[in-house]
Nucleic acid binder design. Structure first.
Length: 111
DNA sequence: CTTATGACTTTCA
DNA sequence: CTGAAAGCCATAA
């Protein structure tokens, strides 16, 4: 399988707790490639869709907490709807959607 | 094997 | 602070 990387990404994304969000860099770092954030997004791009419902791709956003999706078949409102449904408040600014990383960022470690 | 692209990130001007 | 460019890694052609 030439997509072992993808599998890792999906596995991590699936482990994101409900009501939380993670950044591409976060996932990439967990996999072992902190610089492959873009690949994470791409992996989700490939897996995003009705064929891969087990992957909460909507919980994965960029470092600013903004939803980068725009050119996809999936409208941002769809992602926002799912996030809000999970209990995540999404702030809409113009055509961009932001999430409070300070509150909903997925943090495995706690002190 | 080389080139190009991308749902990103970081740094420089 | 805002905008542009380079960097990084994997997949596709």
């Amino acid at each position: 399988m030439s997509g072992n990387f993808y599998q890792k990404v999906f596995k991590k994304v699936k482990k994101i707790p409900k009501g939380k969000v993670a950044t591409y860099g976060q996932i990439a770092a967990l996999i072992g490639h902190p610089k492959a954030a873009q690949m994470v997004g791409w992996a989700l791009h490939e897996g995003a869709g009705p064929k891969v419902k087990g992957v909460p791709w909507q919980r994965v956003i960029n470092r600013e907490g903004r939803i980068s999706i725009v050119n996809m078949d999936h409208p941002p409102e769809e992602q926002v709807f799912l996030l809000r449904r999970e209990g995540v408040k999404v702030r809409q600014v113009e055509k961009n959607f932001f999430v409070d990383l300070n509150k909903y960022l997925w943090q495995l470690k706690k002190k």
